[in-house]
Write a protein that binds this DNA or RNA. Structure first.
Lengths: 365, 365
DNA sequence: CACCTGGGTTGAAACGTGTCAACGAAAACG
DNA sequence: CGTTTTCGTTGACACGTTTCAACCCAGGTG
């Protein structure tokens, strides 16, 4: 695709002005010749240094340095059948929640010398599919995946291709299918609901993302449970507004729907499926001249960085984002290291309530 | 590294329960046999479909579908010397500015069938170096890079290895070195300064990131120019507070330094090098009981999503983030397509002032 | 001294693909 | 009808690495 110079004419590349011209083709064999050993030995120096006598090892390392050899990972993963990079398939790079998770994944991956490639599904099924295909073509060692919906068929296909994965933030994948690490969304909805009920709210709206996402469903269910638990009828007390995506724009556009309804059903508090939605909603409310929390209490979910930075601070349900990513990658590592006697595992974190300024007691009347 | 099963024993993999067992090894040759053609023809179907008769093409495509063949990109890039993925080397995945840019890059890359792998420097030189090495080992086709500082030696090395790149948001790379696309930071600082001066501010603080970053230096310079232009002494009017990183935490921690100084030098407005810094600063000010913009005007830089979502809205200098990414990738594409008669190019966008609620006229007295 | 042992090293054989000269057949031409 | 051109297809080879049986040799054992 690139032909660095007119094919047959091995003309000197004008770019390599500084430093040694760095012979265009330095492979393992060239290094071997230069060090007076066989290619196999060089390979050993690279991959199992302990098996080679320290004298020759030093000689090889010197040659590597002198020739400025850089390993060709295509060759290596072609021969070994697997590449040494793992995919991180994320729902939305734009969402701070995911970027935080990715930090955890990266930190854990480097300890194993694995490279992380970050891929973005943008909450779209076909993009997820494209990315999964990409991972298969690259023969990725493994992947950490946040599935876009309940249909795991593409992921099963990926595993059949020989690429292991662990599901993140999706607790409902059976343990016969794969590992998963997630946060208890039922519990999250529950503590959110209890918090609002404790403040005297009797009519709340759940501003939801698509119900095709399991997290959304469970947070909703938890919220309803809280009301049932308090002896109130969830059917009457919690209304749902569903949006197709979980971003701020959607939150802002939802204002009308949230405020709609007769004075009787008008909510005194809103629980958003997401901090992003909450942020947009608060902006929309501000536009309408409504004050948070005086006119309406607002809760988010995730506790992303900016939840603490806006005014009023966003009351929200915190998820251990960094640890989530770390745990997922650790699980993946253990599966890669011992594929034969690996049994899928499910890790469940517990969310925590973080109270800030965006929720207040319901002033009746 | 992975040994799918005890070496010699080709035992049936218990995982492939559903669907066809999908013979573990389907390569281009297997497809060829199945379609009754030569491997070369299959390769042509994959890469230059127009050169193969439609009858045989259909036959091959059927075989591909039936065998569930998935191309092995290791083999392909080993043979061709280049992989078909490009790197996007970003300063900080956490910063919404970069995620927006990445969307532009991705959208443009898919039009050329290139896969984008996102790599994170975390504003750290050694991580940038690791990532550059990774790109070299993978023989990446190219890269879009936001350099962490002025030292471009690693990037020059990368190009010597045969991987082209274009610099993003770093206008000072010479056109003898590589393409670049950036936003005019001098102009940005200038319009920011004019805005503040127009509001009557005479004493402002520039809350800066590390001055090793070119953008920071230039925005500062633009700000000073605005004052000089207005007949005021920049040396007296603009004070600088420098922070080592460009994130919200740093902004919050800078409150003391910003407010420090006798009543005479106490600023009535702050220009932040970054929206992230501005956000943190505003939070810190809130903690101190100071109101924005009543007690202090605050400006950001970038116009990330949330600048419009917080209260008060953040007055800021908008950069065309998405177009930035798109332009960079387009430049890279053109270099990859015609490496021989390519001449490096420099694209400079113009920033725009976005006035929101965080700046107000200076109430003297 | 003959024999074994085992750590170091070698050489050749894959891995799956792209490329390219060569070739056959059919079509266009004189 | 013979000759050239065009279009499709073929095989074999090369890319850079890992792997593995074979081998060498020094040191220990009987």
């Amino acid at each position: 695709m690139r032909g660095p110079s007119p094919p047959k004419t091995a003309r000197e590349n004008p770019l390599s002005s500084s430093a040694r011209p760095s012979h265009p083709k330095v492979g393992i064999t060239e290094v071997a010749r230069h060090a007076g050993v066989s290619p196999g030995t060089v390979s050993n120096v690279l991959n199992r240094p302990e098996r080679v006598a320290s004298a020759t090892r030093r000689r090889v390392e010197a040659a590597i340095a002198e020739l400025d050899y850089v390993r060709n990972s295509s060759g290596s993963s072609l021969r070994s059948g697997r590449s040494s990079s793992v995919g991180l398939l994320v729902l939305d790079v734009t969402n701070p929640f995911f970027t935080e998770v990715s930090r955890g994944v990266e930190d854990e991956a480097v300890t194993q010398g694995l490279a992380v490639v970050l891929l973005n599904s943008a909450e779209a099924r076909d993009r997820q599919r494209r990315n999964i295909r990409l991972l298969a073509e690259q023969r990725a060692a493994g992947a950490v995946v946040m599935p876009v919906d309940d249909d795991l068929s593409d992921l099963l296909w990926l595993r059949r291709q020989g690429t292991a994965w662990v599901a993140l933030d999706r607790g409902d994948v059976g343990e016969d299918v794969g590992c998963s690490v997630s946060v208890d969304n039922l519990a999250g909805g529950l503590i959110a609901g209890r918090h609002l009920i404790g403040l005297g709210h009797e009519q709340v709206t759940f501003l939801a993302g698509p119900f095709s996402i399991e997290q959304v469903r469970q947070r909703h269910e938890g919220l309803r449970t809280a009301f049932a638990e308090a002896g109130m009828d969830p059917g009457g007390a919690v209304r749902v507004v569903e949006r197709p995506l979980l971003n701020p724009e959607q939150g802002e556009q939802a204002v009308d729907a949230v405020l709609a309804g007769g004075p009787r059903q008008r909510p005194s508090a809103v629980l958003c499926a997401n901090d992003q939605l909450a942020l947009g909603l608060m902006k929309g409310l501000g536009r309408r001249g409504l004050r948070v929390p005086d006119d309406l209490s607002v809760m988010g979910y995730d506790d992303v960085d900016f939840a603490d930075l806006i005014h009023p601070g966003l009351t929200t349900v915190a998820q251990p984002k960094y640890r989530l990513g770390r745990a997922a990658m650790r699980l993946l590592n253990s599966e890669l290291d011992h594929p034969e006697h690996h049994v899928h595992e499910r890790i469940l974190f517990t969310p925590e309530l973080v109270v800030r300024g965006s929720t207040a007691v319901h002033r009746t009347g």
